[in-house]
Design a protein around this nucleic acid. Structure first.
Ligand SMILES: [Mn+2]
Ligand SMILES: [Mn+2]
Ligand SMILES: [Zn+2]
Ligand SMILES: [Zn+2]
Lengths: 138, 138
DNA sequence: TAATAAATGCAACAATGTTGCGTTTATTAT
DNA sequence: ATAATAAACGCAACATTGTTGCATTTATTA
């Protein structure tokens, strides 16, 4: 993933490759973990907050970023994988918040997760875990 | 669960049994499923919104209600079970949103859910499902 | 380089979160 | 039953975020 990847991706989704969008995406990429809105705002303070709002909306709509988690009044955003498309998110990962470093990350689980409720039809599953991450352990 | 149960519960948690709290709790109980904030506000429009805010906060803090789900700008609240206490929520259920009736409910899963990520320590697990509920099925 | 649809910035308003403070009320002690 | 007291309430006030409209600017295509 680099700036050219994002440019192509934006064009593919019929979005203009504007500075706002490219800046946001490269910033989020550099951030590694899911990026809290306050941090996004901080690094995007040159653009109007309405533009930031619409930038997040359009990228979310187009399956380029997703809302990884929301707690209290902080929303965390992360970049989507290749499976997501326009109006069609498809995530097979879970979200984890480390209680030590406080980072929110997208993680793969080892085992397949099958959750069922008798007589209910389940379409989508969202899992959020809290604990200690690999790096903070020991 | 009735009004006396709530009165005792509030006293047990060192909270005054005020009209706001009793009204909120009985309303939520009658609502059956997790109650969206907008509906709570609607049925509590006689009290100041700051009081409603503090009422929700105090009940949440004391383990009497919990935030069942939050989507877009709607937060859903539900009454806690007996296991929750002051500063100590302990939920073993999951949250389900029916895409037909749009109700959010607290549900028990049949099988024990064990999710692991290699080298991570997991403290708490939150699961949110979407689909069709028992009543809306068929 | 010109045309055009999309994106941006700004103004404006709504909703919710949050605190301070003076008044009211639930609870406890007399 | 009454009085004392800490908790809760209502109101004002301010912050943050969400959201839309509209005129101007910009990315893309012809
Ligand atoms: Mn994710
Ligand atoms: Mn619940
Ligand atoms: Zn960590
Ligand atoms: Zn249903």
């Amino acid at each position: 993933m680099d700036i050219q990847y994002f440019k192509d991706l934006l064009h593919e989704r019929a979005l203009k490759a504007t500075n706002s969008r490219l800046n946001l995406l490269t910033t989020m990429l550099a951030y590694k973990s899911a990026m809290p809105y306050s941090a996004i705002q901080e690094s995007m303070k040159s653009v109007d907050r309405v533009t930031l709002y619409r930038t997040l909306e359009s990228l979310k709509q187009s399956g380029i970023i997703h809302k990884a988690y929301q707690e209290n009044n902080e929303t965390y955003y992360a970049i989507c994988g290749k499976k997501c498309g326009h109006q069609q998110h498809s995530h097979d990962h879970i979200h984890f918040k480390c209680l030590k470093c406080e980072l929110v990350t997208c993680e793969q689980t080892t085992t397949d997760i099958k959750i069922s409720i008798p007589e209910f039809v389940i379409n989508t599953t969202s899992i959020y875990l809290e604990g200690i991450c690999k790096l903070c352990k020991d």
